[in-house]
């Protein structure tokens, strides 16, 4: 390292070239600090709702109270940091509006996350809600997109009973519900396959005008799903940014008085996101300047 530095030109150009050769682990440390500091100081920025978050909010808001809504927890703890905030907000929004909610999961661990949401959101902020009447937990069903396809013809064949083992014929919320077309809105909180794309391909396409469809997605998956908006998806929440915007819309209209932390997770996580993005942009600029400095120095040396 010392030998290499001795060969570099003195002054600012040498410094810039040296910065381009920095050990990448210092960058990891800088990213850690950039994320930890705003978290510990609870740095937050105001959010301006984007078009897609507003469209998702409007879709849920536009159906009359008492409508049946199906929320699919198509993710697991690996992506919960990104998707749990929007799932919480969607659940709170539907419950506040007075919709009757059915929860299901195409991912095995999605069921546990839906259970947590029932405990932490539904029963915490809406203790008056009654299981079987206002909400029902259908649980996980194996079969990936096959489950969606089956539900377009018969929900009872996919889910003979809810997660607690009660036959769906005895659940008041599902009285008269034969297919997913009997729901007024379906929301898929999706981390991959099966998820939002499969709901569009096998659910929405089979019954194009039967229900409204909205999705919350991870950042990685979003570019794959963007072509479906707005024709096949009425609303879309993209990653933590979409969650933060939507959270703001929901909590402004339906505020909660106690332990509101679970409905502010998206906005809380946007603080570190902002600082980390600034750092990354700075590093990209610095890397390019360093490359140009090294190129100019080599050219001059020749």
């Amino acid at each position: 390292m010392k030998q290499r530095n001795e060969q570099l030109p003195p002054g600012i150009r040498g410094f810039l070239i040296r910065m381009g050769q920095i050990d990448r682990r210092w960058i990891y440390l800088a990213v850690a600090v950039a994320i930890a500091a705003p978290m510990l100081t609870r740095l937050r920025f105001p959010e301006v709702p984007g078009r897609m978050a507003q469209a998702t909010f409007n879709a849920i808001e536009s159906i009359p109270p008492g409508s049946r809504v199906l929320i699919a927890y198509d993710f697991d703890p690996a992506s919960a940091a990104e998707l749990e905030p929007m799932a919480n907000a969607v659940l709170h929004h539907c419950a506040s509006k007075g919709h009757r909610i059915a929860l299901m999961a195409l991912w095995p661990l999605g069921k546990q996350l839906a259970d947590d949401a029932i405990r932490d959101i539904l029963l915490e902020y809406h203790p008056e809600k009654v299981e079987g009447v206002d909400y029902v937990q259908l649980g996980f069903k194996t079969g990936n997109e096959g489950v969606i396809k089956l539900m377009t013809t018969s929900i009872a064949e996919a889910y003979a009973a809810d997660a607690s083992g009660k036959p769906i014929t005895q659940i008041p919320l599902l009285e008269g519900v034969r297919t997913i077309g009997d729901f007024q809105l379906i929301a898929s909180i999706s981390a991959g396959t099966p998820g939002a794309q499969q709901w569009v391909q096998y659910g929405d396409s089979a019954m194009p005008d039967a229900f409204k469809f909205v999705a919350g997605t991870t950042g990685v998956q979003s570019s794959q799903l963007l072509p479906y908006y707005p024709k096949q998806m009425e609303g879309m929440l993209i990653a933590i940014k979409g969650a933060a915007e939507y959270e703001m819309l929901v909590t402004e209209k339906y505020p909660v008085t106690r332990s509101a932390d679970r409905l502010a997770l998206g906005r809380e996580r946007m603080g570190p996101q902002f600082v980390a993005h600034l750092l990354l942009i700075g590093l990209i600029v610095l890397g390019n300047i360093s490359m140009l400095a090294a190129r100019g120095w080599k050219g001059a040396a020749r």
């Binding site: 994320i35 978290m39 990104e82 950042g219 990685v220 993005h277």
Partner: peptide
């Protein structure tokens, strides 16, 4: 860009 945002959020989740 979306991928970076997603990965940073996962790191924030672990730090949380």
């Amino acid at each position: 860009g979306f991928t970076v945002m997603g990965r940073i959020t996962l790191l924030v989740g672990r730090f949380d």
